[in-house]
């Protein structure tokens, strides 16, 4: 379980997160929606320790992580938590296979053959077993996202944080990614937190949905009831009301 309490983060003059409270329960898919620029990516980066919050606490399986050093984060947090970046962030000077196996090389004592096998399995899971030898810039946007997912699941994480996995993809590809997120959640039991502003995707994949607005989670509800909420900001956002500041 991941628990975020009163998380605050500011850059220079600008307060981005202003007391975020949320809980990611084991086994669920939690979607966080919110307007562009509200700090959704910043929230994820705090949870995985890429950014240090100014205030507040984050517990992962009961352990407080905001005070950990980089080495401690590596051994205690990032061994069980993966992240799929908004723009993939694939290492572009390495092949797809090297992208997937690189971290395995440093983390565990897998042989070369075992690493290749894990890469192949991960690529099969995302439906891309034929591109192991290609370089990221030879792939389409949708393929890059799936490779980024394959790279994250090769580490067998308990938690996976997705940053806008379907943004910029056509509806068919979006659904492929949606199905993939559901499959990883159901079959591998990966607890997922998905940042998105794709309401269609929320309906398909989420167990619960929360909304980040002006630095706070202003509303949280079960995804199946999302069209019957009485929170005004939340309703305006999911209906795309242009009056929402």
């Amino acid at each position: 379980m991941v628990e975020v309490k009163q998380l605050k983060k500011r850059f220079d003059r600008q307060t981005i997160l202003d007391g975020v409270d949320l809980t990611l329960r084991d086994g669920e898919v939690l979607c966080i929606i919110g307007k562009s620029g509200t700090g959704k990516s910043v929230l994820l980066k705090n949870i995985i320790g890429l950014l240090k919050p100014d205030n507040g606490t984050i517990y992962i399986d009961g352990e407080e992580i905001t005070q950990l050093t980089e080495d401690e984060l590596n051994t205690r947090v990032r061994t069980k938590m993966g992240m799929v970046f908004q723009y993939g962030a694939l290492w572009d000077s390495m092949t797809v296979e090297e992208n997937i196996t690189l971290a395995l090389k440093f983390r565990n004592h897998f042989t070369h053959q075992e690493r290749k096998k894990i890469a192949q399995e991960s690529l099969e899971l995302v439906g891309l077993s034929h591109i192991a030898k290609e370089y990221p810039d030879e792939l389409s946007g949708g393929m890059k996202k799936r490779v980024a997912i394959a790279r994250a699941i090769a580490m067998k994480p308990k938690y996976l944080l997705y940053d806008e996995p379907t943004t910029g993809l056509d509806p068919v590809l979006s659904n492929i990614i949606n199905d993939l997120i559901i499959k990883l959640n159901r079959e591998l039991g990966i607890t997922s937190m998905v940042i998105t502003h794709d309401i269609n995707s929320v309906e398909k994949i989420a167990h619960r949905v929360g909304m980040l607005y002006q630095g706070k989670i202003v509303h949280m509800c079960d995804a199946k009831d999302m069209w019957h909420q009485d929170n005004e900001i939340f309703n305006k956002f999911i209906h795309g009301d242009t009056q929402l500041k």
Binding site: K45, I48, G49, L50, E70, D71, N74, T75, R78, T79, M81, G82, M83, F85, Q86, Y87, A89, L90, W91, D92, L102, A103, F106, R107, R151, M155
Partner: peptide
């Protein structure tokens, strides 16, 4: 392009 952040999230310093 966040590739350095990606290294960090996969526990590579």
């Amino acid at each position: 392009t966040e590739q350095i952040d990606a290294l960090r999230t996969t526990a590579i310093n």
